[in-house]
Amino acid sequence: MKQKYDIRFLICQIAVAVLGAIGFFAGGRPEGLVVYLPDMVLSIAMIYFNYSLCKWANRWHGFWNERNPGSGEPSRYFQLSGKVGGWFLYLLGLGCAGLAWII
């Protein structure tokens, strides 16, 4: 059930991102997509796969820096910071798309 709700939200995120991308064409600035599209792909992936990315980062850090690395389970703060970063990138992209629509 959770996965169904998550997929639904993910589709809404992607749909709004696509609406924003159309604005770059409507505003006569298709070159803005060079930055917008990677930003959207990266931010949406960061938000959805936040836990896995944090765990991978911890595991890699432990493997590289520690003789006996632990499980790599990320703390709540690490996960929260990943989420905040992902949403910041996503909203920044949407803001730029909004400007492309109106200017």
Partner: peptide, 21 residues
């Protein structure tokens, strides 16, 4: 200690933000 995806609060706030945009 967590899972991929979104928390219920994140979905609620996210839907509001997405609706505005």
């Amino acid at each position: 200690s967590g899972a991929n995806g979104y928390s219920p609060l994140e979905r609620k706030v996210g839907y509001a933000i997405l609706a505005i945009f």
